[in-house]
Design a protein around this nucleic acid. Structure first.
Lengths: 187, 187
DNA sequence: GTAATTATTTATCCTATGTTAAAGGATTAG
DNA sequence: CTAATCCTTTAACATAGGATAAATAATTAC
């Protein structure tokens, strides 16, 4: 849990009591490569923090597997569109390597917001930051060619391209695997 | 300010004291059609609520005007990527009709979070909801043709197409105005 | 109300990316 | 270790949407 509390510190340092309260509603989960951490159709009630490994959120559009996002160690993953709406998610979370994650029970978390405003503030800030990243991603998707988006990913997150099968990268970039291959083959 | 407090009620009902505290850091602004409410390069320190009228957030990509989003009456507008990061925004907010907005001073707002956890919770929920909408929009942008995106907008937000110049709609959809015309001309 | 500006459409031509198919490499299961 | 599966590339062809230009329509400024 240590990495998690280190991570929290960057957003809002917590008292020992608050850390204990979060520890009490969390558990460590280990999961094998390519397994789903959470399945499609399930209402998201867990916020994950990745200690080791990496995950993606994906869904099916017209039967085709589409990757919405990747998350690496030392970061949070959650299907926020379900977590914050209470509706079942059409998306799943899958790990792409053998992974170890901290699973935080979101229902209990939302309850302890009342007793620990500092925890509410912490998660407010965490999700504000995630929101900003999502807004910036929209900008990256409007009026950039596939090649521009590939190059941006290459320079901003080369680890994605080193650790993730290209077929998942392709749908993340909004193109087919064949197009991605063509772009990589130098133009 | 009445519409605003009605709007808040949907997220988190406030005490009279909390409402007064927000009122104290807010002002009403009226602004003429096509004027910028906030310019490019300015660090966003205001959250707006639209009483009357409509606004868009836009920026320039390679010298071309790109619309990131539209906001109608009874909704919030803010350049969150600046508001939550404290960095200057490369985006501006422009109203597309003569408008009346409530301007909430964000620095003061963030300060009164300490005295009014209910206000912090309110805005946490408002931005969680906005975050969910943004995540859903990314899904709409991955692997949908321009025509599909146009039709989706037509059925989900016909008011956009009725009140907004088409050139702004085009860049919002991520296509040129010429392409949008072609799509509208039936394919 | 008229001129000037700005928005929208239409046409032509061109390129990036999709589609399908097939071959070669890499990884996994037994 | 081998077979089977899965991933990636390459090629050929099709098409959606970009670019440019010009004509019309609508709006704005005086």
């Amino acid at each position: 849990m240590n990495l998690l509390f280190q991570y929290f510190k960057k957003f809002n340092p917590l008292s020992k009591e608050a850390e204990a309260a979060i520890q009490a509603i969390s558990s460590i989960v280990t999961i094998k490569k390519s397994k789903d951490l959470q399945p499609i159709g399930h209402t998201c009630k867990t916020i994950y923090f990745i200690n080791k490994g990496l995950a993606r959120i994906y869904y099916f559009k017209d039967g085709i597997d589409v990757t919405e996002s990747f998350s690496f160690e030392n970061n949070i993953v959650a299907r926020v569109e379900s977590l914050f709406s209470g509706k079942p998610s059409r998306k799943a979370i899958q790990v792409l390597e053998d992974s170890e994650v901290v699973a935080i029970n979101a229902n209990q978390l939302f309850k302890i917001y009342d007793t620990f405003p500092e925890i509410e503030r912490l998660f407010r800030k965490i999700f504000e930051t995630a929101y900003v990243e999502t807004v910036n991603r929209i900008e990256g998707m409007q009026f950039h060619s596939a090649e521009e988006r590939y190059n941006a990913l290459l320079s901003e997150a080369p680890n994605v391209l080193m650790r993730v099968p290209l077929k998942y990268v392709a749908s993340y970039l909004g193109i087919t695997q064949v197009s991605l291959s063509r772009i990589r083959a130098h133009r």
